[in-house]
Every structure is written in structure tokens, then in C-alpha cells.
């Protein structure tokens, strides 16, 4: 489950095209414009590789960190049906992580390096997972709406230019579609259930709405960086466009269930066809993405402990003379 690669608008960007061979660059861009996929052995600009590694890696981290808030509800899921479905769902997410680390490895960075960068705090992951899943209903809201948001993003990115990432995303989207059904079914049962169930799901939705609005990231339409990444089909839609698409698909479904969203300004403008909403608190978003959210420390600590506890297994399997990742181009 993943929103979007976060590009800090204030970060000093390297000169994206500096030092690139203009002839190769023109060929590369022409291939992308024709809708061809770029494969690991093909020539690519340094910034293309750098951005893709960063993006696929963040996506992979989001999958395995995302397994934690929902994973805590596996042992408490009410009844066989939910218990089995939730284990399968979280297992899928970990599987997506595995698939994506492999896709990123084709660009020359090993899984081990990526995981080290995750647990040292150097790499980011989707901000939503820094919020707690306090009740069973939180796990339902996550499975429905966070996965729904992820599908909007991943479907767009599956039409991107890097072959291994697109193929991974095709498979991921197929599985996420089941998660969405599971999440929706779960929310429907709570929203149409007893007073206690209904209050539980309303409370979860109210708490999760701000992180959901943050999910696609701040407005980035006007960034020069975005423009080049969109031309290279690394980024396929602006954050605002994806947020609009999500609101258009899911707000009516939420309202249909009689649930209330905590934004009095949320409405569709029929003239523009766009949703109007209260701008989310982007200062909070930045604070959380930079490490100061309610669960950042806990999530990384759990991951770090898992890595430390499992280190002996990895060491026992390792053949010292074997080289695991070769940068291919």
C-alpha cells in the first residue's frame, strides 16, 4: 500500500540533466514517448535511476512497515472469516515488499542496503503508517481506504516507463483489488452493525481522515522536477489529480454508509467537477515524515528488532564469495 514518492519542494535538486549525453538522452526520451518500457540493461539518465530506486524502495518499505499496524490485529480478528482474510491480506503486503525490493535491485541497490537505510531512518515510507491502528475498525478503514488510495497511485504508476516496476505493479494491483473488497466488506459490517460497531468505525474514520488526505502528498503540480519526472513516466499523475480521483470514487461510498467525514467544507463543485476540501495540515505532514509522528519510533524499532533477531538466519545462509546484486547498466 503506497501513496506517492514524497518530493520535498525545498530540497536542493541536483541539476537533473547535467553531464548526460544529449544523443542518448534524446533516444531515451523518444523511446518513452513511444510508450516503450525501459529495461534494466538499457541506458538511462542517472537521475532516472536515482528517482526510481528511491521511489520503488519507498514503496517496498511502505509495504513491510504497512504490515505492522494491520498485523497487530491478526491475533485479535473476530471470527475465522476475518482472521483468515486478514492474515492473507497482510501476507500479500509483505509479498509486495519482496517483489518491489527485487524490482529495485535490478537498478543496482541490494535489498540489504535498502533495509539498512530503512531502519537507520535514511529512507522514507508512506506517512500513514506512522499513525496507530487503535481498534479493530482502524484495520477495516485501512484495508478499505488506504488500499483504495494505493490502488489509485499504483494503477497510474503501472503505466510508467520502467519495465520491472510496471510488471510488479500489475500483480500488486490485482491483489490490492481483493484487499479493497475485504476492507469494504469489513467496514459495511461495522457501519450496519450494532451501535458499538458503528461508533467504532465512525471513530476510526474520523481519526484516519487527515492521514488519508495527506496520503497522496502536497500539491506538486507546479514543480519543475515533477515536470521532468512526468515526461520520463516516472511519475504518472500529480498528487492533486490522484487525490481528486480518490475523493471522487470513495467519498460517495463513505456517505452511502451514513458515515460522517470530519471536514465541513468537503463537497463536489459541479461546475469544475472537482472536490473542494479544507487543506490538510501540511506542517503536520512534514513533521511526521521527518520522524516526529505518533508511531515513527515504534515502527522502526519493531522493524529493527525483527532484523536483529533474524540476522543469524541471514548470516547462516550467506555464501561469502557470492555476489548478490550487480548494477546492470
Amino acid at each position: 500500500m503506497y501513496g506517492n514518492a514524497y518530493i520535498d519542494p525545498n530540497a536542493k535538486l541536483p541539476s537533473i540533466l547535467e553531464g548526460e549525453d544529449p544523443v542518448k538522452l534524446a533516444e531515451f526520451e523518444a523511446r518513452i514517448a513511444r510508450g516503450e518500457k525501459i529495461e534494466p540493461q538499457d541506458w538511462m539518465p542517472k537521475e532516472y535511476r536515482r528517482q526510481l530506486v528511491r521511489m520503488i524502495e519507498q514503496h517496498a518499505h511502505s509495504e513491510i512497515i504497512g504490515a505492522l499496524p494491520e498485523g497487530t490485529w491478526i491475533t485479535r480478528a473476530p471470527g475465522f472469516r476475518r482472521k483468515l482474510a486478514l492474515i492473507a491480506k497482510v501476507q500479500d503486503e509483505v509479498g509486495h515488499g519482496q517483489l518491489l525490493y527485487s524490482a529495485a535491485e535490478t537498478l543496482g541497490k541490494s535489498r540489504e542496503d535498502m533495509i539498512n537505510d530503512l531502519i537507520s531512518g535514511k529512507s522514507k515510507y508512506s506517512n500513514v503508517f506512522n499513525y496507530p491502528a487503535k481498534t479493530w475498525a482502524d484495520s477495516a478503514v485501512i484495508a478499505w481506504l488506504i488500499d483504495a488510495g494505493a490502488i489509485v497511485n499504483q494503477l497510474a504508476n503501472s503505466k510508467g516507463s520502467y519495465g520491472p516496476y510496471c510488471r510488479a505493479l500489475d500483480r500488486i494491483c490485482a491483489e490490492e483489488a481483493f484487499h479493497l473488497k475485504y476492507g469494504h466488506d469489513n467496514v459495511v459490517f461495522l457501519a450496519t452493525g450494532t451501535d458499538v460497531q458503528r461508533a467504532m468505525v465512525q471513530d476510526a474514520l474520523t481519526r484516519w481522515w487527515p492521514p488519508i488526505m495527506h496520503f497522496f502528498g502536497p500539491s506538486d503540480r507546479s514543480s519543475k522536477h515533477t515536470e521532468i519526472l512526468m515526461r520520463w513516466k516516472v511519475k504518472m499523475a500529480s498528487n492533486d489529480d490522484m487525490r481528486q480521483q480518490f475523493l471522487n470514487m470513495y467519498v460517495p461510498k463513505i456517505w452511502d454508509l451514513g458515515l460522517v467525514l470530519p471536514d465541513p467544507n468537503l463537497k463536489k463543485n459541479n461546475e469544475t467537477g472537482l472536490w473542494e476540501y479544507t487543506e490538510p495540515d501540511w506542517d503536520e505532514f512534514k513533521r511526521v515524515i521527518n520522524g516526529d509522528g505518533p508511531c515513527n519510533a515504534e515502527r522502526l524499532a519493531v522493524r529493527r528488532t525483527a532484523e536483529e533477531n533474524g540476522r543469524w538466519v541471514v548470516n547462516a545462509l550467506r555464501k561469502p564469495d557470492e555476489k548478490y546484486v550487480t548494477p546492470l547498466a
Binding site: L68, K83, I87, V90, Q91, V94, N309, V313, V314, L317
Partner: peptide, 17 residues
């Protein structure tokens, strides 16, 4: 199922799930 998300390597995490 308690290994889900915490396995020593991702492949084992998935296997135990």
C-alpha cells in the same frame, strides 16, 4: 501468524503466514 511482518527474512515471513 504472529510471524507476519516480523520474519527473519521476507520469504519466511510469507511462508509462516
Amino acid at each position: 501468524s504472529e510471524w507476519t511482518g516480523l520474519g527473519p527474512i521476507l520469504e519466511e515471513d510469507i511462508a509462516f503466514s
